[in-house]
């Protein structure tokens, strides 16, 4: 257990966290502005990854594929918002949970129908392959650094969008008082569609970038959806800042916990049982973290009470 390993795992955790941020930023915006619990957010992650894989196989370009993931998920988002989601804003949480749960079934099966059950693969471009030396003796995957960089770029972009632009003013106003901004003559349903599509496209981008490390397959969105919910609940629902801090917290805790908890327990227990106990608790760690935070602060770190 050296500091190099620790540093590497820390970077892995941050990379995982930035991906979670792309998912949870959209989720938290959609909840904050429209009051919608969207379980189908993971489906946009999947749609983004499949759009990217499709375009990559047609054109061979990774960058076009990333663009396709953004636009593919955004288009799907707009369509689904107009056809289905729009009717759910006024409903209670229960109807929203059930309808978006059904939407997962529909979208997952639809994608499986079209693309088949076998996973697709998305290749990392040449110039992002390999590793990069950072600091003296630490080398780290270029592609993962690229993911971290993209995540930070989007975090900054979102910050500027929300706090400096006209659209951002409307989104913030929408979070505070929906009736008032529609009374002021702003086309609220158009705003909702834009926010939903924005969230969907960020999820799609995340799906494509992770799809290149893992594989592109049906059902890839649901595990990360649940984690994104954990993130926004920890950060406080509706808060982008909370989503960013929550994502990094969850990403790092999960990665570090799984690796180091078994090692830590070996100090107190025999090796075999330390491994099994450590890995069980390691995989539960973020849920324990979430429960603890909610018990201390029932509306998350940055949530409004």
């Amino acid at each position: 257990m050296t500091s190099i390993l620790f540093f590497e795992q820390l970077l892995n955790g941050i990379q995982f966290g930035t991906m979670l941020f792309l998912m949870s930023a959209g989720l938290t915006l959609i909840f904050g502005v429209m009051g919608l619990i969207n379980l189908a957010h993971g489906s946009f992650y999947m749609i983004g990854a499949f759009s990217a894989a499709l375009i990559a196989s047609l054109t061979g370009s990774f960058w076009l594929a990333l663009l396709a993931s953004l636009s593919g998920a955004a288009i799907a988002g707009v369509l689904i918002e107009i056809i289905i989601i729009r009717r759910l804003y006024r409903r209670d949480h229960l109807d929203q949970v059930l309808a978006t749960f059904a939407l997962i079934l529909l979208l997952s099966e639809g994608v499986r129908w079209y693309f088949g059950a076998f996973p697709l693969y998305l290749d990392i471009p040449e110039n992002l392959n390999g590793t990069l030396p950072i600091l003296d003796d630490i080398i780290y995957s270029k592609y993962r650094l690229f993911i971290i960089f993209m995540g930070l770029l989007i975090a900054v972009g979102l910050y500027i969008l929300i706090s400096k632009t006209r659209l951002g003013v409307r989104i913030r106003a929408g979070q505070n008082d929906r009736q008032m901004i529609s009374a002021l003559g702003i086309d609220i349903s158009k705003l909702y569609t834009i926010v939903f599509a924005l969230g969907a496209s960020l999820a799609g981008l995340a799906g494509a970038m992770i799809g290149a490390i893992q594989s592109v397959e049906v059902g890839m969105g649901e595990p990360i959806l649940i984690l994104a919910f954990v993130v926004i609940v920890i950060g406080g629902i509706g808060s982008i800042k909370g989503a960013l801090i929550g994502s990094i917290l969850v990403g790092v805790t999960d990665t570090i916990g799984r690796i180091f908890l078994p090692e830590l327990l070996k100090i107190f227990m025999e090796s075999a049982s330390a491994t099994s106990v450590g890995s069980s608790i390691g995989s539960m760690l973020i849920y324990i973290l979430m429960a603890l935070i909610l018990i201390i602060k029932p509306s998350g770190l940055f949530g409004k009470t």
Partner: peptide, 12 residues
């Protein structure tokens, strides 16, 4: 907790 937080903590 109440509302969405209750939904999510039971899920957790």
């Amino acid at each position: 907790t109440t509302g969405v937080y209750f939904i999510m903590i039971t899920l957790a």
